[in-house]
Amino acid sequence: MTIWARNLDTGAVKWVYQLTPHDEWDYDAINEVILADQEIGGVKRKTAVHFDRNGFAYTLDRTNGELLVAEKYDPAVNWATKVDMDKSSKTYGRPLVVDKYSTEKNGEDTNTQGVCPAALGSKDEQPASFNPETGLFYVPTNHVCMDYEPFRVSYTAGQPYVGATLEMFPAGRVLGDKTDNTGNFIAWDARTGKIVWSDKEQFSVWSGTVTTAGGLAFYGTLEGYLKAVDLKTGKELYKFKTPSGIIGNVITYEHAGKQYVAVLSGVGGWAGIGLAAGLTKGNEGLGAVGNYASLSNYTALGGVLTVFALPN
């Protein structure tokens, strides 16, 4: 739940920032931290940008750990109202937790319902990317909420240590907006903390993304599409159906003077566990199966590298 800045040569801690103090929802901050130099409030800052599992995107000054921006990058996020940005406040830098969604306040044996995001986070380990020309971040996201019921548990070395059951479902069920998509591919302005555009995806976007100088962002979908969209508008310009769901990272490279784009397909991971492990019931796979139950209608298991060459 914490970002650590350490001296490369000595390992000494320079600063720390705790994203979800006393985590009650499994929002451990395992995601990447992207370094980008950006102008914020007229000042050029060396920033570190992090899209946390907890649904907030953080922009920090990486030289000293100062918190510059912390905003929700999925409007569904409800476990906290905001991150306190008031430097004179006692709770400065902390998320302001909503009691109704506090699994600790509700306590053992109580099923806390409709918490957004789900334990898999508004984004999990699939990396976002930064495009220096637009100044925006291109972020693969999950649009998923959960019910979370803790129960008493005790630690024994070498044995399972699980203290909650959970079930996940599309965020639309909590928002009441009749949507059932579980993902969005978004462009994010980390200087202001705002979504610039958002493309709905039926399933969580579980691939890494890449952008090019040609003005394109690439990502993959759980149904198996590799997509190219316009960096400025998000308009879909190209898609290709690979043999299996994409949870790999799209890459681009040059060889013998020609540019290529490549991606590994092969569904799996938390979102794809139902399909990969043959599970079918909602609570299985730590609650992921129900949410992605229809995935098997769209893709199959696989493991293929698909490479695209740019035309001459």
Binding site: P160, V162, L279, K281
Partner: peptide, 18 residues
């Protein structure tokens, strides 16, 4: 009900869901 929860935290990683 409690058994359902404990089974799925202690047993199911080897013995499978349900």
């Amino acid at each position: 009900f409690s058994g359902y929860r404990r089974y799925h935290s202690e047993c199911h990683v080897c013995h499978g869901p349900n």
